[in-house]
């Protein structure tokens, strides 16, 4: 696991209708967040299931965020 906060690999599963749009807006407003945060758009955060969270960790993520 990474020790440096900026290098932490975070997977963010974001709902198309709110969190993903908010991330888009953040981009439009030139707000910065670390590039190690990987945003994955979902049609709805209700689509997420525990397997996807576990597989993110298995493949090296330091944290998983589900936003919706």
């Amino acid at each position: 696991m990474s020790q440096n906060g900026d290098k932490l690999q975070i997977i963010a599963f974001c709902c198309h209708y709110c969190a993903y749009a908010a991330a888009d807006l953040a981009g439009g407003m030139r707000l910065k967040y670390p590039p190690s945060i990987k945003v994955i758009e979902l049609p709805c955060s209700g689509k997420i299931n525990p397997v996807q969270v576990l597989k993110a960790f298995e493949q090296g993520a330091d944290g998983v965020m589900v936003a919706g």
Binding site: N49, P50, V51, L54, K55, F57, E58
Partner: peptide, 13 residues
Amino acid sequence: TKEVDLLATSLRM
């Protein structure tokens, strides 16, 4: 299938 997937991931980790 879903539970097999979950268990496999859990066991691997």
